[in-house]
Design a binder for these strands. Structure first.
Lengths: 231, 231
DNA sequence: CGCAAAACATGACAAATGTCATCTTTCCCG
DNA sequence: CGGGAAAGATGACATTTGTCATGTTTTGCG
């Protein structure tokens, strides 16, 4: 657990303290679907009709900049919910959600979720906590984008990916396939810069590259380069 | 109302729909204080003991980067509350709050506020909405920091300041005194860059400078330079 | 009022980063 | 399995932006 700018992760679940009736109500009304890699759960600009719960799989949430460039806002893992921000503030989606691999996703209709919010205070409070954690994450990340050079941001992003998605059996290969472009859109820089820096990290023995697979070989050194925030 | 990255503003109040008893309870327990310009309401890293309501005056919320450089996270105006994020997630403050001018501030003790949250669902729901709006703001701002050049960011920031704090009687002079360094820490760049760009904007007739006073002379042009997000 | 400190301003320069062009490799789909 | 498209890689270069040095102006306070 690095005290880095992506520190949110490890949030349990907004339903962790829900009443049995709440869980039953949601189970009754949820609609589960299978999505292939690269499919879109929802689109930036659309109005939300419900909440998405990621049962299995990985998802990216990305926002389009003025010139159409993608900025990846959050990485979402199995067990997380998405789409709540727009739902709560009765607003359009601020980003599109696209699966990074095949995924099983449950949809909880808006009315059901809003009803749950009214009948089970614990869900509301947990949701408030989740929003708070994400707000903190976003605000720390603001600082990091404004103040850190690309090299440090990449190191930190690699650590963050490990923290979010973990590793394969070998305990070093990041358990997600992201293109260089996607990494660039997460770090907030040009794809070429990422390609150059990754091969530099590779040459310097911090990571090992094998196609889209990235192994974290020397984590201590990466942490040093990342120049992380407190803790 | 620009659809810009600082679009939050115009949020009314988390107590707008509160019950009379709620208001009474808060009024009974609140502690009001006067703060001189430059005084600190709370410090990054400390644990929160309550919520701050800004009755009059202006406040900046800033986070320290790794090398000790200030990043201004939010600008707060009279009528806003601050300190709720840390309170909700039972976390340390992620930023320090400092007055930008003399201010009257009410303090609502933690227990009182948490009790209100339990007894008046409207406050919780409004707080959730506020958090949602701020999260959106922060995530749009992430994109803007990652993708826009300093010139565009400065133009947008000037418009944002106008939107947040408004103007003096003349309807063009921004109603707040910020140092060049503070503007730089809001935009996320070096002070010298801001000084150069401001005098460039001045020369080109978009703004007029008079010490710390900044007049928005040609707003249309500024909007054009800012290259704003949708709407 | 006058002085010291802070803020503002400006130039010169270096470093970081983005862009463009081109080539190679990998991946996907029929 | 093969061919085309996408992704990855690399070099040359321009641009943006930050840094440092230095001078000027403003501000606050005894």
């Amino acid at each position: 657990m690095y005290g880095n700018c992506f520190a949110q992760s490890s949030y349990t679940s907004i339903f962790s303290k829900a009443k049995p009736e709440t869980v039953a109500e949601i189970n009754k009304h949820k609609i589960c679907n299978f999505y292939r890699k690269g499919q879109m759960l929802f689109t930036e600009g659309a109005f939300p009709f419900g909440l998405y719960y990621i049962k299995t799989g990985k998802v990216k949430l990305s926002h389009l900049g003025q010139d159409g460039k993608e900025q990846i806002i959050r990485l979402i893992n199995a067990g997380d919910v998405i789409g709540y921000r727009a739902l709560i503030s009765n607003d359009r989606y601020n980003g599109s959600a696209v699966t990074l691999e095949d995924a099983n996703v449950c949809f909880i209709p808006k009315e059901v979720f809003l009803h749950v919010l009214q009948t089970d205070a614990s869900v509301g409070f947990e949701l408030m906590k989740l929003l708070s954690v994400e707000l903190k994450t976003a605000e720390i990340r603001l600082t990091y984008l404004a103040q850190k050079p690309v090299r440090e941001r990449l190191a930190e992003t690699l650590l963050f990916i490990k923290q979010t998605y973990g590793c394969e059996q070998d305990a070093v290969t990041l358990d997600v396939r992201l293109s260089r472009e996607e990494i660039a859109n997460l770090v907030g820089t040009a794809t070429e810069s990422i390609i150059r820096l990754l091969s530099e990290f590779n040459k310097d023995g911090m990571i090992a590259l094998d196609g889209k697979k990235i192994k974290i070989v020397n984590e201590e050194e990466l942490i040093k380069i990342a120049n992380l925030e407190n803790v």
